[in-house]
């Protein structure tokens, strides 16, 4: 634990500001993140230091989160409900901008670029950092149009043939093409839940993002559909960085390389997934994974 604190202080002394207020209200001894939150600059995709999020009325949702996310890794974020894991995820592509009264402070960098920087643009950022949501949310359009939505928006295809190709390859990557190739013009809402979620994944990868954020992507699905999606995530790791928020510890254990444990808005522990589940270093993490709460 001391080592981790030192490590953090060494890595980011400039961004380690004390969180505004509220910190003392928590009796838990979360003074910093234990484990290995930082990648020492090697292959860092996302770099975050001192991230705080406030909602309307100065209610703080997450406190001073410091973590690195590596290239082509699957990082799972776990923790009890309301611990801030989804909020943090939404910081990474500035989805929190769409919530009125939400304020994010701190330093988040994608490939070294400050995502809140002046030259940065949320639209471009979201094209680079795609997102899949908890409930499958296909648009009220045909399957084809759902997948073509992003490429059309961003002008990625010069002609119909290119667009067709993007749609086909995205659907194929999402493992959905075989199932829907005969009914691309039918509404996306007509698919089953698992198919809808894969459609949403296909829609996301159609713009070839660098990172895919997944906010509990299987929580609304049955076990079989969940298994399909988990396999898919494993394959997607080859080409994308994936951050996944999940309620299921088993899922985190199955698909991720690293795991981050959040508790009451604080990042308690980050480590290799195996280490987190076999040898948690923080008492709270241990309580959680052994099922004492959460």
């Amino acid at each position: 634990m001391t080592e981790a604190t030192l490590n953090m202080a060494a890595a980011a002394p400039q961004t380690h500001k004390p969180a505004a207020g509220g910190r003392e209200e928590f009796a838990h001894d979360i003074t910093g993140t234990v484990g290995k939150p930082f990648l020492d600059g090697k292959d860092t995709k996302f770099f975050s230091r001192g991230v705080n999020v406030f909602y309307t009325g100065n209610k703080q949702a997450i406190f001073d989160v410091n973590v690195d996310i590596g290239r082509n890794e699957v990082i799972a974020m776990i923790g009890p409900s309301g611990c801030g894991k989804s909020t943090f995820l939404r910081c990474l592509n500035r989805m929190n901008d769409t919530i009125a009264g939400c304020r994010v402070t701190g330093d988040i960098r994608l490939d070294g670029e400050d995502i809140h920087g002046k030259e940065q643009d949320p639209v471009l950022l979201r094209a680079r950092v795609g997102m899949v949501f908890q409930k499958p949310n296909p648009f009220p359009k045909s399957i084809y149009d759902n997948v073509a939505y992003g490429p059309r928006l961003h002008g990625l295809a010069a002609n119909r043939a290119e667009l067709d190709e993007i749609v086909e390859s995205s659907l194929t990557k999402a493992g959905l093409f075989k199932e829907v190739k005969d009914r691309l013009q039918t509404p996306g809402t007509g698919l089953s839940g698992g198919q809808q979620q894969r459609l949403c994944i296909a829609r996301t990868i159609a713009v070839s993002p660098e990172v895919i954020l997944m906010d509990e992507p299987t929580s609304a699905l049955d076990p079989i559909a969940t298994a399909t999606i988990e396999e898919l995530i494993d394959e997607l790791r080859q080409s994308f960085t994936i951050c996944i928020v999940t309620h299921s510890m088993q899922q985190a254990a199955r698909i991720s390389q690293r795991t981050a444990y959040f508790h009451m808005g604080k990042l308690v522990e980050v480590n290799n997934t195996k280490t987190v589940f076999t040898n948690p270093q923080h008492q709270l993490t241990e309580n959680y994974i052994t099922g004492r709460f959460g």
């Binding site: 471009l124 094209a127 002008g155 713009v207 070839s208």
Partner: peptide, 12 residues
């Protein structure tokens, strides 16, 4: 995401 795509998005 390749740089060409980033550029395309930026251009739009």
């Amino acid at each position: 995401m390749s740089t060409t795509i980033t550029e395309k998005v930026r251009a739009s």
